[in-house]
Computed example of a mutant assay.
Amino acid sequence: MAARLVALALLAALPAAMAQPACDKPVYLTFDTGHMGVAKLVAEVLKKHDVKVTFFAANEKTKTGDGSLSRDWGEWWRARATEGHEFASHTFHHTYWMADEPGKPARFRVRATSGPDAGKTVTWTAGEYCREIERAALRIEELTGKPPLPLFRAPGGKTSPKLLAAARACGYMHVGWAPAGFLGDELPSEAASNKQLLQKALRDIKPGDILVAHLGIWSRKEPWAPEVLEPLVTGLKARGFCFATLRDHPTYRAWILRGGK
């Protein structure tokens, strides 16, 4: 009987143990979509160095004229799922929160950067905003065959307490990034060279940081990937860091295990 109890205890602890990062200096690399111009290069670096990341996906305009969540990108997304990466919503039309409307129930001024209403400021209810998060999540699952995490990232990281509460009420927790985790790939090349961005990241990133980059930024002439990505990965590994997905992050782990509850 005692042996059986010990075995049951070990089995119960197994999921938690499996969720622990592979070292005591984890970092959590995440990618938002963007124009997808460096998506292939990013995937090659991640596979080469066995790095698992979390992708936040929106249906953004790409350099080939289609959307980043269109069927034209289906094979790319399915390959990332096969490799063991995780996925989450970035809102379907890359919709920015602009401001809270006064009064109750909660309403928000928002502006999409893609889709039929791109560039227009409109007012949404909490339910409409939730459907925008959910639409991207459903599309990701359709393309990858893998349920996304019950997480989302608001474009630009712009939110309000009301917006976060509305999203959480419909099953989505927001994910930002650490100050040092802003990898700078959306800065104009004239303002920050790749060399400067790499040096800053290797100097400032700390264990537990969430890092953010993109699969292509229109404003940057000097592509960040793979010129910065690969030496960043190898440099952090040389310093004893390991890479984990947000499924393993202590802030989100229990939320994910409960299915967004």
Rank of each mutant, 00 (worst) to 15 (best):
A126C: 12
A126Q: 02
A126T: 00
A126I: 00
A126V: 01
G127L: 14
G127F: 07
E128M: 13
E128Q: 15
E128R: 15
E128H: 15
E128A: 14
Y129A: 15
Y129F: 15
C130I: 07
C130D: 08
C130F: 01
R131I: 04
R131D: 13
E132G: 02
E132T: 02
E132D: 09
E132L: 01
I133Y: 03
I133H: 03
I133F: 05
E134G: 00
R135E: 01
R135L: 00
A136I: 09
A136P: 06
A136R: 07
A136F: 07
A137Y: 01
A137T: 05
A137V: 06
A137M: 05
A137Q: 06
L138D: 08
L138N: 13
L138W: 07
L138M: 08
R139I: 02
R139P: 00
R139Y: 02
R139C: 00
R139K: 10
I140Y: 06
I140F: 05
I140V: 15
I140A: 08
E141D: 13
E141R: 14
E141P: 07
E142R: 14
E142W: 12
E142H: 12
L143I: 10
L143P: 10
T144E: 07
T144M: 04
G145A: 05
G145I: 04
G145D: 05
G145M: 07
K146C: 07
K146N: 08
K146Q: 15
K146P: 06
K146T: 15
P147E: 12
P147Y: 13
P148A: 12
P148W: 05
P148N: 11
P148V: 12
P148M: 10
P148H: 08
L149I: 15
L149V: 12
L149F: 11
L149A: 12
L149D: 09
P150W: 03
P150S: 13
P150F: 07
L151G: 03
L151I: 01
L151R: 08
F152V: 10
F152T: 09
F152P: 04
F152I: 12
F152H: 09
F152W: 14
R153A: 13
R153K: 13
R153W: 05
R153M: 11
R153Q: 11
A154R: 02
A154Q: 08
A154Y: 00
P155V: 01
P155I: 01
P155G: 06
G156V: 03
G156C: 02
G156N: 03
G156I: 05
G156T: 04
G156A: 03
G157H: 03
G157Y: 02
K158G: 04
K158E: 12
K158C: 03
T159C: 00
T159L: 03
T159S: 12
T159D: 03
S160W: 00
S160Q: 00
S160Y: 04
S160E: 00
S160V: 02
S160R: 03
P161W: 09
P161N: 09
P161V: 11
P161G: 05
K162H: 12
K162T: 11
K162A: 15
L163N: 06
L163A: 15
L163Y: 04
L163G: 06
L163K: 08
L164R: 14
L164M: 13
L164T: 13
A165W: 09
A165C: 05
A166M: 00
A166T: 04
A166V: 02
A166G: 02
A167S: 15
A167C: 09
A167H: 07
A167F: 04
A167Y: 06
R168D: 11
A169H: 10
A169E: 15
A169Q: 14
C170L: 09
C170Y: 06
C170N: 07
